[in-house]
Amino acid sequence: MTVTLTVDGKALQAEAGSNLLEVCLENGITVPNLCHLPGLEPPPAACRLCFVELEGIDAPVTSCTVPVSDGMVVHTDTDRVRRLQRSALRFLLSVHDVDCKNCHANHHCALQDLARFLKVGLKPRGLSIILKEPEVDDDHPFIRHYPNRCVLCERCLRTCHDRHGHSPLALSGRGFDTVIRCFADTPEDAQPCQSCAACVDVCPVGALVLKTG
């Protein structure tokens, strides 16, 4: 069933129950997001960036968790929404090693794009910078991980699970200490990674890099 909804004053047609964030993106409406992957359900709603306001609901909601319905009225560019998005991005940048010059994702990094779009400086003022140790995780035989570049969007984990049903990568620890880590049992466990490396492709920043040579 097709429904009609209004986003920023524009009337849009969409399949009932489809993902609001995806509908917006398909129609060329920019909604900041990091953890969304088209087609992979359920959304983790981890990045806290895709907020929108719905008429009739008090507080802004994450658009990736909202199924569209008929007559829905959505605003993506309000002060409240932008404030939430800026805060979320500033917090992400406060645990990020902003060293773009030496990062292979420089110029095609989701964080740089978001900072430009939301007009947030890459070095957040007024927040202390908390970085993790070690700087580089070389546990995986084929993939190098930079925990201080990672935004914990879980895209790599979800892609890996989607393709292989299980993954040698997993979230480890909690709070500020949360990191993606490789727990391969034997080197053979990570063998498929050499030819797959889908996780490296879906990383929105430069946290995962294929080891060469």
Partner: peptide, 21 residues
């Protein structure tokens, strides 16, 4: 940890993920 993963037939990474939390 390996023994537990084998017994429950879940990936080792998942057991570590829970245990480190």
């Amino acid at each position: 940890v390996k023994m537990v993963a084998d017994h429950l037939a879940v990936p080792l990474s998942e057991v570590y993920s829970v245990a480190t939390f």
